[in-house]
Write a protein that binds this DNA or RNA. Structure first.
Lengths: 337, 337
DNA sequence: TTGTAAGCGTTATCAC
DNA sequence: GTGATAACGCTTACAA
């Protein structure tokens, strides 16, 4: 009287292999105290039936599921996708799955939306991408909801168990020092948006390098954008159209660097002969625009893998790598003076 | 003796509102045969407790879950992300969630991976993005696994219940006719990779326009790429370095168009004065390179929303919109001859 | 080493 | 209209 509706269950396996469901369960969960012969017998039946445990039933019995969430609101598609791939590196072959949740960080319902999402799906844990990750109130919300989380960011936003971070400040400092070593003295900055930790960290890196070299960092040396192409172009116009002369500009991300490139070109400047440009992110755009953009690459995929591991193994979360180093990527958008 | 571990359950609601759990269940599921007073009483308790039904328990009892899958292997990050957002448009506010699965279509384990993914997660349905969506054997696999699916593609790959499609052929024909109207006569084609339906559809559109205008479509007029920047550049080199002269080139996607642009520039050609270029996709790259790329935009987000709706409401899947029209986006990479 | 019974939180069946 | 009761597929006591 087996009602063969769809997939085989643990009962089918138990019946066919002549053991109890509990024994099958032990085989599935690799319990150490199991007769080898029994195990092999059961495994043979499992293979024959192509039995796969029902994750919903497991989730119910274990009072936890196998869903990792990823919350983002990001203008940088490549970064988000790289992150997704990194998470898959970590959960591939396991029973975990990745649930994504794009949100609008400017929505007044942001917190309510996220709360509903977490309460409804009862995720095992969530990963939060910048710039949302920089919001401490959001992290507090996850704690309140009893949902484990890992933040990805450009600074030490949280403790090691809840963070994967890059060293943006040092990375930008290195990049600007590279420009200085090439003879540049008037190096402009296109800042990221106000309130973004990544933006302030990158600005700090620029200041570090400039100040250490005794170069000017006054207000005429910088302009603000918000990580979009248009604002990068506008910031470029602002800098290049003022009284201050520039031989190089560091833009706080690649997209804005592309905007600066447009601004330069529309003013008749040639890059890199008349103006050197450096970006940040090493997104697809960097290698695709002309000239190819000198930039800074951060190991997003590795960071994502690590973030997922922290969630999957909370007991070892603090031991999992948290700080990830960036890599300077020299291309053709920089020339020496 | 309520063991208050975490979230409230249906039992808590039943006890506090003095009804059976079945009645609570009826309230949750909006059963029509319910005393209005009872409903209000229960709803008050639900609100007070902030009770949210456990999706894993529901999934177990209903023998179906509320997870929509999305399988992709795509070089185009923006498209994938737009699609994710479109799916969210459809499932936002509902109990459904989106599970993503990037895969490597060149992996020998592709089918096994996907099979394991489907069997393990028991998804409610999956959406397949191009180019994977063009693989009929894969669609057959989903049918075999009893998993509903919707394919996204550039041609009529399946019936309306399992497809959202764009009209690439007509779109390219329109774009090439635009070039012809601008006085172009030698219009090259950078094809997409062999075996891709989108590639053959776009090629057909180019042939349609050229043939209708009595223009040449011989082998010297085209070169093949595989949708990457490098292959686009190589194809551009091949076309521009041959005996045949070109005043315009249509590349089968934006990234390859960017490659052609590089190739043109490295040969000392100015775009669009010496060479007009048209792409396809309207990805971020299109607006970001210089000059901004004339291209074709397809309404990915709308397609994604429709795909998700087809899965959520299988009974009405064939009525949900299936064919989506593209939009020609004129920018600065085209000049008249 | 293995089995039995109870329970995870929900819905379906079928009475009342 | 509403409520016992038995599923759903699995795991954790607790025995044996």
């Amino acid at each position: 009287m087996a009602k063969r509706t769809g997939q085989p269950t643990i009962n089918d396996v138990a019946r066919l292999s002549g053991v109890s469901k509990k024994t099958v369960s032990r085989v599935i969960n690799r319990s150490p105290l199991l007769n080898e012969a029994t195990r092999e017998k059961v495994e043979a039946v499992i293979a024959e039936l192509a039995y796969v445990p029902n994750p919903q039933a497991r989730a119910l019995a274990l009072r936890r599921n196998f869903l990792l969430g990823m919350i983002y609101d990001n203008p940088n598609a490549q970064m988000v996708l790289n992150f997704q791939e990194g998470v898959l590196d970590a959960i591939g072959g396991s029973e975990f799955a990745l649930v994504v949740r794009p949100v609008d960080r400017h929505s007044p319902d942001l917190f309510d939306d996220i709360r509903a999402f977490i309460e409804q799906q009862r995720l095992y844990g969530v990963m939060i991408l910048p710039p949302l990750s920089e919001n401490d109130a959001l992290a507090a919300l996850f704690t309140e909801l009893g949902c484990n989380y890992v933040r990805m960011g450009s600074a030490t936003l949280d403790d090691d168990a809840h963070l994967v971070q890059s060293n943006d400040r040092q990375a930008v400092r290195d990049a600007v020092e590279h420009l200085i070593a090439q003879g540049h003295r008037q190096i402009g900055l296109v800042q990221g948006p106000e309130g973004f930790r990544s933006a302030s960290e990158r600005e700090a890196g620029w200041r570090d390098a400039m100040t250490a070299a005794g170069l000017p960092t006054g207000p005429e040396m910088l302009a603000r954008g918000n990580y979009t192409f248009e604002t990068g172009r506008d910031a470029g116009e602002q800098l290049l159209g003022g009284a201050q002369k520039f031989t190089a500009i560091f833009a706080s991300n690649d997209v804005m660097a592309a905007g600066v490139l447009h601004a330069a070109r529309s003013r008749g400047l040639t890059v890199p002969q008349d103006l050197s440009i450096v970006g940040f992110d090493d997104t697809a755009i960097a290698a695709t625009i002309w000239p190819p953009l000198t930039t800074v690459r951060w190991p997003i995929r590795d960071m994502a893998r690590s973030a997922a591991m922290k969630l999957i193994h909370p007991e070892a979360a603090a031991d999992e790598k948290s700080l990830f180093l960036t890599e300077f990527v020299p291309r053709a958008s920089v020339a020496s003076v």
